[in-house]
Amino acid sequence: MGREKIYPYAVARIRMLENSLLTEKTYTQLIESKSALEVFKILSEAGYGGENSIDIKNYEKALSSRLAKAYSDVKELVPKEHFPDVFLLKNDYQNLKVLVKSDISSINGESYLVGGTTVDIKDMKEAFETKNYGCLTENMAQAITDSYDQYAKTQSGQVIDNVMDNAAFKDMLKVANESGIKFVENYVKTLCDITNLKSYNRIKNMKKTVSDFENVFVHGGTVSLDTFKKAFNAEGASGGFKETAYNELALKMDEGFTVFEKSCDDYLMAFMRDAKYKSLTVEPLLAFIYAVETEVKTVRIIVNGKLNGIDTEVIKERLRDAYV
């Protein structure tokens, strides 16, 4: 008997919910459809948007409610556990960024707030306005103060992002460590590394300097800042990662920006796919959230592609690997 906690009911429900994920066949149909209208029709048939039909005005809403449902389904299945928060926290921090930035710029950022958070948006706004951060985590409260301080010094919006991202990973690692589940811990660390690799690739592509990278580096992954610094000075973009677990992934940097970004998402998906062969432990629950997040991302790529009349082949290149 293993000592890992088992969740037969939750995993069985998730397995059933997995049946509602879009399949390879549906993706092919979506890509080959002639117009965005046809895409919306297929999505409606696949269960997006519920009773309402989807059109150009409400498709974003349908996508976010699909995500929100996945989050709430999983949360409902394991009400006493906090590990699903590793997925929700990024949305909390996205909202914090929006709140801080709209406060500084006095532009109303209401439309950029996202759902699927650990702290209710209303509570967060109230906490933000009253400066009473009781309902936020310590890291969030600290991040708000820090980002104002840093902004006052540098007048750059980017430092807010960096402060928030670092705090987000701190909170995610905390949740992961407290859960004591190896899979969750590894996911957060991998995500952290991938985030850094993406920033590295972007900054390298833009021919910026090491210090620019240092400004966006997030702590908590397995690849250290030193390794990145060395990689920065090495020949070629991908050379410096030979001794890390990401050598193969890093090689994709040489194949261009789009290919690398897609490969990063696929790398995480491959990590998640291990959960397919777990029948009683928590992995499938997390993988399900990730699968839905990826599905929504993919659908968004297709819809935006179709709306903007982008060539089918170009859309295909950008499609992420699906879970099922």
Binding site: I6, P8, A12, R13, R15, M16, N19
Partner: peptide
């Protein structure tokens, strides 16, 4: 008991 929990999970959806 373990099998029953899983069964309930499946039946709850179908």
């Amino acid at each position: 008991g373990i099998a029953g929990e899983a069964a309930a999970g499946v039946v709850s959806e179908d």
